[in-house]
Amino acid sequence: MTQEILGTRRLSKHFKGFTAVNEVDLSVRKGHIHALVGPNGAGKTTLFNLLTGFMTPSSGEIHFNGQSMSTLRPSQIAQSGIVRSFQISAVFGSLSVLDNVRFALQREMGVSFFFWRSDRVLNRLNDRAMELLESVGLTSVADHLADSLPYGRKRALELATTLAMNPTLMLLDEPTQGMGYEDVDRVTRLIKQVAAGRTVLMVEHNMKVVSAIADTISVLQRGRVIATGTYEEVSTNPQVMEAYLGPTSRYGEGDAA
């Protein structure tokens, strides 16, 4: 069996009178594509915010590669290898597509505070940046402003930027949301392709995507994990069907099998 790379123990997040994440025990195995599914408001995005340090847990623990992450700042968590994408596409709109990727690469170069040097020093990163753009099919628009890209391509750019960090664990928040069929297929293949040698934890609503690429699926409902397993295991779980379809419907069974 492969080892656990990310784990949470009784992780909870309470907002005033409302529990968004409730004692979640999550275990993500190294090399897996792990999908988080669940109805709206199940706490998926909050869970992401906890894992990346954007929110502080009310209680519970997070371990990454055997180390506790609770005291780290979000930027430190990112540096340690957990890089996230956002539900709403997050690109740097007033930079060019190439500069977006270079920005992710330049921190490692250690020149980010050099206000007296010309940005030509960053040209050294161009080859690597173009390679990354190539992998998401954006080389033809490398010199366009990121803001001018259509939505699907912004998401692809975001993926390239995330990859530039060479993350051990990628957290993707609804990577195919708002995309047309073609884009969905392309991005799905892309995720599968870039997941080689990494671990991916993704929130995804599109069951076609999930069933195609996810090794493990965890179903969240009202802040709790109600089932974890393969697509077959999870989709036949009565609790899961109840969560998605309501207590009386039996319709989901045939569909899932």
Partner: peptide, 9 residues
Amino acid sequence: ARAISLGYH
């Protein structure tokens, strides 16, 4: 937020 998630302070 994106800059933070890329490791910037």
